[in-house]
């Protein structure tokens, strides 16, 4: 379905959702991200690609301040979402994360029922007033996660009992349930088999309707299949950022070219 990079893809200029300027990240004394500027658009899938250890996941985790949970990590520069600086003192990272959801590399359902997995976010953020509201949110999120039909009869079975691909879609549904505006995905398919991967990729394309999606991926084919914009990271630098079609067919930087043709990796 998405086997070839689609150069004629819809590339209209859209509203900018996240604006990052001069971002530097340090782990202790290691300089992990060096002066990165990037604009991420709304209702677009943006892919971060690059060799292992290039800083793409680190940068992704800056966007919802997940790096705060690591003691030795320090972030400099400015990241704005809808014009609000997320590293401002007034910003509560907890609220930020409700607005910028995240899906992880390995499916990580909580050891609770499927229903409780989805309801967890809405509950802590107070999104449902009644049980009926909550039921509705759960159903809607599971539908958006494209997993409703598979689990609707066993909502109270443990989430850990699902298959890997189902678990990951459950995690996406769980992230969607808090009504975020941005969805961050850190290699969401790396632990899945090809069929499950195809299902998740299809889902990502649908999510683009409503969200700004940022996906970190190891697989260039995947980036080409699902994203409209692509950013190539190398050794902590953002080497090149632009339309996915252009990056894959006509990269400006020689390093990008080497990477996508398989010479560095």
């Amino acid at each position: 379905m998405y086997d070839t990079p689609n150069t004629e893809r819809d590339v209209d200029q859209k509203e900018i959702k996240i604006e990052a300027r001069g971002v530097q990240v340090f782990y202790g004394t290691t300089h992990a991200i060096k002066d990165v500027d990037v604009d991420i658009e709304d209702k677009t899938v943006t892919a971060f690609i690059g060799p292992s250890g290039c800083g793409k996941s680190t940068f992704l985790r800056c966007l919802n301040r997940m790096n705060d949970t690591i003691d030795i990590c320090r972030v400099e520069g400015k990241i704005e979402i809808d014009g609000d600086d997320i590293y401002d003192k007034r910003v509560d990272p907890v609220q930020l994360r409700a607005k910028v959801g995240m899906v992880f590399q390995k499916p990580n359902p909580f050891p609770k029922s499927i229903y409780d997995n989805i309801a967890y976010g809405p509950r802590i953020h107070g999104l449902a007033k009644t049980k009926a509201d909550l039921d509705e949110i759960v159903e809607k999120s599971l539908r958006r996660g494209a997993i409703w039909d598979e689990v609707k009869d066993r909502l109270h079975a443990p989430g850990t009992g699902l298959s890997g691909g189902q678990q990951q879609r459950l995690c996406i549904a769980r992230a969607v349930a808090t009504e975020p505006e941005v969805l961050l995905m850190d290699e969401p398919c790396s632990a899945l088999d090809p069929i499950a991967t195809a299902q998740v990729e299809e889902l990502i394309d649908e999510l683009r309707e409503n969200y700004s999606v940022v996906i970190v991926t190891h697989s260039m084919q995947q980036a080409a299949r699902v994203s409209q914009k692509t950013a190539f990271f190398h050794l902590g630098n953002l080497v090149e950022f632009g339309e996915t079609g252009k990056i894959f067919t006509n990269p400006e930087d020689s390093r990008t070219e080497s990477y996508i043709t398989g010479r560095i990796g």
Binding site: D88, Q95, E206
Partner: peptide, 20 residues
């Protein structure tokens, strides 16, 4: 696969969160 009408309904109700 997704319920399109439901999505659009949800769109209008989306909560806007001010970070500050």
């Amino acid at each position: 696969m997704t319920d399109a009408s439901m999505d659009n309904a949800a769109e209008g109700a989306r909560r806007t969160i001010s970070l500050y």
